[in-house]
Design a protein around this nucleic acid. Sequence first.
DNA 1: GCCAACGTTGGC
DNA 2: GCCAACGTTGGC
Length: 154
Amino acid sequence: MNHWLLKSEPDSFSIDDLAKAPGKTCAWDGVRNFQARNMLLDSIKKGDLAFFYHSSCAVPGIAGIVSIARGGYPDATAFDPKSHHYDPDSNKDSPRWYVVDVKLKVRFKRIITLDELRAQAQTKLRDFVLLRRGNRLSVMPVARKEWDFILTLE
DNA sequence: GCCAACGTTGGC
DNA sequence: GCCAACGTTGGC
């Protein structure tokens, strides 16, 4: 089992939105970056765990934990001309973009803030992808030791 | 294959 | 809203 971090802008889709979804499960759609897509398609498996990260908001940070309920399958929003995530270069015969289904597992009582994570950038989280300069990936791997350490911050 | 232009991300 | 950093596109 592997560990991941998934970014979402809470103004668009927050951990509370996931909590309200049927079965607390949603497709993680709208990823439009090839590196992130490749992880959704090839690397992230049913049963893996991921941090739900809130980005581009007042208090960026980790809001909770989701489990992967279904592995990679085509992102239907790419086929929908009315969707903000529509991509005319993707079609059902040859999908360009993929989603996984996520199910809410733990909603933290408070956000583990980016500031708190960054405070460990020289020690426990030296190699954490999220803290790398200029990082913009919306899907990224989390090492087991990083995962375990971050859980101690909650 | 190079690289300038452009668009997006995301913290501040 | 700003802007640094980065990804993607497209002309050559």
